[in-house]
C-alpha cells in the first residue's frame, strides 16, 4: 500500500468538502474493492474519504410501492431485512448471495453500484428492477446510470445517497458463480414491474445490460418457454480463461429461463 490520508466526515457537506480539498480523493464505502486494489498497489488515492459515519446514508425505508435503501446499507442488512424479504424477495436473495459473510458484512449497495464491476450482482438488481439512483445532487434513472466497465453517470465527487426500488409483481435472480472469485460468471435478473418486463444480465459483458429480445418475449408471455429459440449473440461478450463468450451467451439463455421459472413459482 502507498501512503494516503484518511478523512471520516459525518455529513455529506463535509464529505464533499473533503473530496474538493483532496488531491486524488476517493470515497470509501464498504471497501471490498478499493482496499484490495490499494493493497496490491494498483490504486494510490491521496485521500480516502470514509462514508460510514454519515447517518443520512443508512437505513431501509419501505413505503407505498417502493423501497428505498440507504447507500451505506450493508449487503447482510439487505439480505436480512423483513420488508425487503416480503416486497422483493429476489433482492434479499441476491444480497445474501454476494461474496461471503465477511464481504456481506462490509460491502454496501452504494459502493457496489458506484463501482459498477462487470461481474457484480447489484447492478443486475438495479437495472433489472428499474431502480432509481439517488445522489447528493439528483436522481438518475437506472437506464441512464451504467455507462461501461467500471463507469457510471456519476460526476466526480458525486455521492450516491440511496437507491429506490419499485416493488415488482415478481422477480428472480439466478447466477452461475465464477469458480475463483465467486462473482457472477453470468447472472440474470428477470422482473415484472407493472406491465413491464426487464431482463438484466451481469458478468457477461463489460457492463450490465438489458436483454431486450428476452424482455419482449416475456412481455407477451411471462413463462420460461417464451424464451425458447432466443439466442444471445456472443459478439462483444466477455471472453476469458474461465468462460468463452460463446459459453457466456449460452448461459444467459439458461439462466434467464431459470430466473423466469423461479419468478413465477
Amino acid at each position: 500500500m502507498y501512503p494516503f490520508d484518511v478523512k471520516i466526515p459525518t455529513d455529506l457537506a463535509a464529505a464533499r468538502k473533503a473530496f474538493e480539498d483532496a488531491d486524488d480523493g476517493l470515497f470509501l464505502a464498504g471497501g471490498q474493492t478499493l482496499i484490495p486494489v490499494m493493497k496490491q498497489r494498483l490504486a494510490m488515492p491521496g485521500t480516502v474519504i470514509a462514508l460510514e459515519r454519515i447517518s443520512d446514508l443508512a437505513g431501509i425505508k419501505a413505503g407505498g410501492s417502493e423501497i428505498t435503501i440507504g447507500a451505506m446499507t450493508r449487503h447482510a442488512a439487505v439480505a436480512a431485512d423483513p420488508d425487503i424479504a416480503k416486497a422483493i424477495p429476489a433482492l434479499a436473495k441476491l444480497a445474501g448471495g454476494i461474496g461471503d459473510p465477511q464481504v456481506r458484512n462490509r460491502g454496501t449497495i452504494g459502493g457496489s453500484l458506484a463501482n459498477n464491476d462487470p461481474a457484480a450482482d447489484y447492478p443486475a438488481a438495479a437495472l433489472g428492477l428499474g431502480a432509481t439512483i439517488i445522489t447528493d445532487k439528483r436522481e438518475i434513472a437506472v437506464d441512464q446510470f451504467f455507462k461501461g466497465m467500471f463507469e457510471t453517470a456519476l460526476d466526480a465527487g458525486e455521492i450516491i445517497t440511496a437507491v429506490r426500488f419499485p416493488m415488482p409483481e415478481c422477480a428472480a435472480y439466478v447466477k452461475l458463480q465464477h469458480p475463483a472469485t465467486r462473482f457472477a460468471m453470468v447472472g440474470v435478473m428477470v422482473a415484472k414491474v407493472g406491465s413491464t418486463v426487464r431482463v438484466a444480465v451481469t458478468g457477461a459483458a463489460p457492463s450490465v445490460f438489458r436483454a431486450t429480445e428476452m424482455e419482449a418475449a416475456l412481455t407477451l408471455k411471462f413463462e420460461p418457454n417464451a424464451l425458447d429459440g432466443i439466442t444471445i449473440a456472443a459478439d462483444g461478450l466477455n471472453n476469458d480463461i474461465h468462460a468463452s463468450r460463446e459459453y457466456r451467451a449460452h448461459l444467459i439463455g439458461v439462466l434467464a429461463r431459470r430466473a423466469a421459472q423461479e419468478a413465477i413459482s
Binding site: P179, A180, R182, I241, H242
Partner: peptide, 25 residues
Amino acid sequence: LLEEIVYDETGQLLTGSLMDYAMPR
C-alpha cells in the same frame, strides 16, 4: 474440478491471483 495454472503462449501467467486461480472452498 477447479485448479489450473495457465500461462499464455508468450509466458505470461494468466492465473496470477486468487481471482483467477480457483481454490476449492
